[in-house]
């Protein structure tokens, strides 16, 4: 592995910035999120490495708002044109914690499903090098280990480079060809060493998901939903900060005779989400919507793709204004 002193962080990012667009976690406008390194420098923002960001890195692959195609319409005529790619350079994102790496693995299941591969998503995945960081300072609200995330080794279908935090140094191990190229670009800043995988600090929250999807498949009509929907105000915060919530809406941006079709983040927590022309709404209340979100994460997605759509990153526990708590839900469901 290549071991580089943490004091050389700026050199490391500058070296990568020569051939990549570097994306780093940083604090801007009081919000921690993944930002281009150039913007960080320009805004004099602070790079945040000691804790996970409020916003997940999912926007790198599924932007909050993304053009799909442009159109021009006048009288009876219509033209539809492709939009050019907005990725000029290869991107590299450093560092992504294992919970968020797992989040990307979830998105891959949906957008790279071989029945309908999403071209725009695929391009972003191919043009991005993911440097995964083994995280040994979990927060009290983190529970990735319980959700099946390997804390020592990132999901290697996504991670191109595995990074270990050795205290005063980082160790880099390439996991893919893309990753190897990235490691080559920073090799000169450090030295080759044999490194033992560091010990990880245990997480406070432990939940048991053994047999949970099967159990929940029999709980659609259970009374548990009556109490869980009570606090939810349907604000959608949980979905927007979640690294795996991927539902999207399709919208227009129109100016005169021209327009762009956009896909934008959406949330099944919104009451208009399923509202049909004519007024029928199959999930008319909070109970139905909270139930759908939890069951999608813990049962439906598992049935379709054999993995949970929750990575235990803990963001919703930290940010839900009403403390709707997925861990508490799992524990109560298990106790039923």
């Amino acid at each position: 592995m290549i071991v580089i002193d943490k004091n050389k962080l700026t050199d490391l990012l500058d070296a990568l910035n020569q051939s990549y667009q570097v994306i780093v976690p940083a604090k801007s406008a009081d919000l921690t999120q993944f930002m281009p390194y150039d913007a960080v420098k320009e805004k004099n923002a602070e790079i945040i490495l000691n804790e996970n960001t409020v916003l997940s890195p999912k926007w790198l692959f599924l932007p909050q708002s993304e053009g799909m195609y442009a159109f021009w319409a006048k009288n009876k005529k219509l033209e539809i044109v492709d939009l050019p790619s907005d990725l000029e350079k290869m991107r590299i994102v450093f560092p992504v914690r294992h919970c968020d790496v797992q989040g990307i693995a979830c998105l891959d299941k949906v957008f790279l499903d071989e029945r309908h591969v999403d071209g725009q998503y695929l391009e972003k995945r191919e043009k991005t090098v993911v440097m995964a960081l083994m995280c040994n300072n979990p927060k009290d609200s983190c529970f990735c280990a319980s959700m099946g995330v390997d804390r020592a080794h990132a999901n290697n279908t996504v991670a191109d480079v595995q990074v270990y935090d050795l205290g005063s140094e980082y160790a880099f191990e390439a996991l893919s060809d893309k990753g190897q190229q990235a490691v080559e670009a920073i090799k000169a800043l450090g030295s080759e060493k044999t490194v033992a995988v560091p010990e990880v600090k245990e997480q406070k929250i432990k939940v048991n998901i053994e047999g949970l999807p099967e159990k929940l498949s029999g709980m659609f009509y259970d009374s548990i939903w009556d109490s869980f929907m009570f606090k939810c105000i349907g604000c959608g915060t949980c979905a927007f900060i979640c690294p795996t919530c991927y539902c999207f809406d399709i919208n227009n941006k129109i100016r005169g005779e021209e327009g762009v079709k956009l896909r934008t983040w959406d949330s099944c927590m919104f009451d208009e989400y399923m509202l049909m022309a004519g007024g029928h709404n199959p999930r008319p209340g909070k109970k139905e919507r909270v139930r759908n979100r939890f069951l999608h994460k813990l049962e439906y997605f598992y049935e379709n793709y054999q993995m949970m759509l929750c990575t235990g990153c803990g963001r919703c526990l930290r940010k839900c204004p009403m403390n709707v708590d997925i861990v508490k839900f799992i524990n109560q469901a298990n106790a039923k």
Partner: peptide
């Protein structure tokens, strides 16, 4: 369900309609 290998897939946007 099997997830596609990125090398196998031709780039496409399934959500873009044709003009009829």
């Amino acid at each position: 369900m099997k997830v596609a290998n990125t090398d196998e897939i031709k780039r496409s946007n399934d959500l873009e309609p044709m003009v009829g």
